[in-house]
Design a protein around this nucleic acid. Structure first.
Lengths: 223, 223
DNA sequence: ACACAATGCGGACCGGGGTCCGCTTTGCAG
DNA sequence: CTGCAAAGCGGACCCCGGTCCGCATTGTGT
């Protein structure tokens, strides 16, 4: 089972009932995939995703308005927000599929990305894979970036961080791997990728090389 | 002369006159300090900053509305935006003084922060200084964070990047220092600091240590 | 002193994200 | 099949950041 299909439903959760009991699973890194939506809700959710995907593809993410998406899906604005929480939530849901594929690859897939290869090599592979996936649809990825306050709490980031920190602990046990993992991940930030590629004109290859070099320096494992 | 007092005025610049001639200074990393504001404009600017500072101190940056600031300064809303471009611009202006002090310190100040010490040591000092300054008023710093699209183009960031890249080139000539500098700087990002301190409960000291360790690993200079 | 650009001013206005609440739909229990 | 709570719906509404444009203030050249 995968860690996280993120933001598939239930963003705000009922406010008044203080806490039913909280099922005994701490640090559940991702969110449940579909907490049993009611029939109509599920249908609307699908329609919304389809409509959103269409509009985004046609006109670019940041030229699309929430109200438009709602209208295109034949649904009220409130429904969009109830289902996806906020604009970022909707955009992230659009990326969910591809993100889950990547997660599957580095959690359970074949080496060198998945288990079986030495940690440093897995790290290198991870960066390469993540980088390529990000470059694929940078624009959307960029538009989906949550505001500064939540960048590090959003499930997909947490999964990546958890993974990288784990590998780091194996590769360099004598370091502050939790912090270091954030630093590594920063080099995969869509906003940075965008800046380096579109404003500084760097080719993707250079970014991949820089990642590999960084991993080498940190793990002290020169390939 | 310092590099950058950022966003002191003239955010949009006239649209119709295509380009007067563009004075022959490329890559002027910061913006001019005060391009000779008209008397009333200067007065209003000062009032606005004072009002903003007061409100922010009293109620926290993100509970303050642009209209409120304008009102408190006895000025129209339009004036705020003309002077500071947007909300982020105003908030950044509030931080300008402290940022300029830091800049002065690492550009012209005494070693180990300023010129005179070996690059790796200057890097360590830089991180420590930047970290402390950021922790000082994290909240404001966080609220002033520009949106993802501009994080890396905003003058203060560019100055820091330029500086770190320079030191890196001296310390590790055989690396992609431009990219590496971004990675280093990511560890000083207010949003990350906030996350690590307030959501993960790390003490500031740990962040300073992590920075020092990172610099050591990258420069290969174990203090 | 005066005229007249240029610069700045301010508040009405707009658009879009997010909320709210009375109504409808669903689906389960009997 | 029916009744009834719970879950979902939707669009009017609010709020705030950002824009616009006719009017007022400067300060400069004569």
């Amino acid at each position: 089972m995968l860690y996280a299909g993120f933001m598939s439903a239930a963003p705000p959760s009922a406010p008044t009932p203080p806490e039913p009991v909280e099922p005994p699973q701490l640090l559940k890194l991702g969110l449940d995939d579909e907490p049993c939506l009611r029939a109509d809700a599920a249908r609307n959710r699908a329609r919304l995703l389809e409509a959103a995907a269409g509009l985004v593809a046609a006109r670019g993410a940041d030229a699309v308005t929430m109200e438009e998406v709602a209208a295109a899906a034949g649904v009220g604005k409130g429904t969009v927000f109830r289902r996806f929480g906020d604009r970022t939530g909707l955009l992230m849901a659009l990326l969910d599929h591809s993100e889950k594929k990547l997660q599957a690859a580095f959690l359970n897939g074949p080496p060198p990305l998945g288990p079986g290869a030495p940690p440093a090599e897995r790290l290198r592979a991870f960066g390469r894979a993540a980088l390529r996936r990000t470059v694929e649809d940078l624009k959307l990825q960029l538009a989906a970036e949550p505001d500064a306050g939540r960048r590090f709490t959003v499930p997909p980031y947490r999964v990546r961080h958890h993974h990288v920190a784990l590998l780091l602990r194996q590769a360099v046990p004598d370091a502050d791997c939790d912090v270091l993992a954030h630093t590594l991940l920063a080099q995969l930030d869509p906003a940075l990728i965008h800046h380096l590629m579109h404003q500084c004109g760097m080719p993707p290859q250079r970014l991949e090389d820089a990642w590999a070099d960084l991993v080498d320096r940190i793990t002290g494992t020169p390939a």
